[in-house]
């Protein structure tokens, strides 16, 4: 049987108005899905360091690499990652986006600027996800040098949000 011979494929498409005007029967359900996700060992330490205003990574001696975010095992060689490495709070923009919509597709007038920032001192260079700030959206470039802007110590809670955002490194 050839697809070319099938006159009408099954499947009935509806419009949003069919729901609004109750032309079709439907039910709604809001799952009561609330979670508390444990930080775990490595990320627990990462958050504790963030609260102190520091970035920390881990090193795998076998693979000779230093990575962030920290993890308790190296997913390359499956050995424990047990050497903590303090890292500077500076880095390089690996890639970025200018995002004009929220997850539920509402428009933003000013874009958010998510970026992957390769953190100095990692080897080979690897990054974390964060936001850029104190920069004109059109001025952001891949390769731009950036540094973390921290919340004041009394506002820090041990969260990735203890870094407000990364901003361009100012010369001098």
């Amino acid at each position: 049987m050839m697809t070319a011979q099938i006159k009408e494929f099954p499947g009935v498409g509806l419009r949003e108005s069919d729901f609004e005007q109750r032309k079709v029967l439907y039910t709604e359900w809001v799952p009561n899905a609330r979670y508390a996700w444990d930080a775990g060992v490595a990320i627990g330490r990462y958050l504790a360091e963030l609260k102190e205003g520091r970035l920390i990574g881990v090193r795998c001696r076998h693979c000779r690499r230093t990575v962030i975010p920290p993890r308790v095992f190296c997913e390359w060689c499956f050995r424990p990652m047990d050497e903590w490495v303090p890292l500077p709070d500076t880095g390089t923009v690996n890639t970025f986006s200018l995002c004009y919509v929220t997850w539920d597709m509402r428009r933003l007038t000013e874009p958010e600027i998510p970026a992957v920032i390769d953190i100095d001192g990692t080897h080979p260079p690897v990054g974390i996800l964060h936001l850029l700030g104190e920069v004109e959206p059109q001025a952001v470039q891949i390769g731009m040098r950036v540094q973390a802007v921290w919340k004041p110590p009394e506002e820090r809670t041990g969260s990735i949000l203890d870094i407000r955002y990364f901003r361009p490194v100012r010369e001098g």
Binding site: Y26, E28, W29, P31
Partner: peptide, 18 residues
């Protein structure tokens, strides 16, 4: 208090056609 947990949800509403 040593156990750090990030709280959140999955913000969806399901709509099932009959």
């Amino acid at each position: 208090h040593q156990a750090i947990a990030w709280q959140g949800d999955i913000p969806i509403t399901n709509r099932y056609t009959a």
